[in-house]
């Protein structure tokens, strides 16, 4: 036991002199951080991808990662409130302190929502409206349009944390955007086929994706955000779908398929299964692949009106 502990301490010390240690809460942020940080960063992820982002489990092994991190990259807008705040509260890292409002406070906090045009800011806060996020809808990572904002935030904050390599981060950002922006242009063209398509989603997390694709989301299967569907609510949704000619049901991968399939069958609609994080499906571990997968799924189910 003693030698194991000694070995661990030595390994930890050896590792410490290497690149910046970064923890990213979700896989697409880990991907973008790797691209922007290059060899200058070592990135660990928390969520794996298939989870409900609101329900990521707090594991003690995450505490160890956060304790040793120089920075944490997170989506913010309280989307990681079920795990990040609690983990930072015990991580004993004064660069990343737990904050009940911002989730993270300290020089190592990289909040990727800075500068994102936040949608659906609630006018009033009440749990009667379900599990709403007080700072606005936090699922901006689902819009490819926000990729450059996220990457820009990461590059800017890495440059502040590690100013001696600011030029490297800037160069890496430029290279990443040179890859992302042509993709964005291509996706915008492809998404034109979805403009004006009416759809319902399971959870209210598609507003940014809706803005990018032009899909008009008219309702959710959940009664309210985070409140499971009730039979009477589903009956109302089906009727609404029939009345408005809604032919697309969007299911986030982590929600059970039965309800969506049933609603789609009742309304004569198709189901598109999307991820709310990268790596929700095999082969979608990067922001680009994740965005592409979601667009493909929407086009396949809703693109041919």
């Amino acid at each position: 036991m003693k030698s194991l502990l000694l070995l661990s301490l030595l390994l930890a010390a050896a590792d410490a002199r290497a690149a910046l240690r970064i923890v990213a809460t979700v896989p697409e942020l880990a991907d973008i951080t790797r691209r922007v940080g290059g060899d200058l960063v070592k990135v660990d992820g928390l969520a794996r991808g298939p989870e409900d982002i609101h329900q990521v489990v707090m594991k003690p092994s995450f505490v160890t990662k956060l304790n040793r991190a120089d920075a944490v990259v997170y989506l913010g807008l309280t989307v990681e409130h079920t795990f990040l705040t609690g983990l930072l509260g015990v991580a004993r890292n004064d660069k990343l302190m737990s904050d009940p409002v911002k989730q993270c406070a300290g020089p190592g906090c990289i909040d990727c929502s800075e500068g994102v045009p936040v949608l659906e800011r609630p006018e009033s806060l009440s749990r009667a409206e379900g599990e709403i996020h007080p700072l606005g809808n936090p699922h901006y990572n689902m819009s490819p349009e926000n990729g450059p904002v996220i990457a820009g935030n990461i590059a800017r904050r890495l440059s502040e944390i590690d100013p001696s390599h600011a030029a490297d981060y800037g160069r890496n950002l430029k290279a990443y955007l040179a890859e992302l922006e042509p993709k964005l242009a291509e996706w915008r063209k492809r998404a034109a086929a979805l403009k004006g398509v009416k759809a319902v989603s399971y959870h209210k997390d598609v507003v940014y994706l809706g803005r990018f694709t032009g899909i008009e989301f008219v309702d959710t299967l959940e009664l309210k955000p985070g409140v499971a569907p009730t039979p009477s609510h589903l009956a109302r949704v089906i009727q609404k779908m029939k009345d408005q000619g809604v032919k697309l049901v969007v299911r986030e991968q982590h929600f059970e398929p039965k309800t969506c399939d049933w609603v789609a069958a009742q309304a004569g609609a198709k189901v598109a299964v999307i991820g709310v994080m990268a790596n929700a499906f095999p082969g979608t571990e990067t922001f680009i692949k994740f965005s592409e997968h979601n667009l493909d799924a929407l086009l396949e189910a809703g693109g041919n009106r």
Partner: peptide, 8 residues
């Protein structure tokens, strides 16, 4: 005290 080890 949280030990500075790779495991928790």
């Amino acid at each position: 005290w949280l030990a500075p080890t790779p495991f928790f």
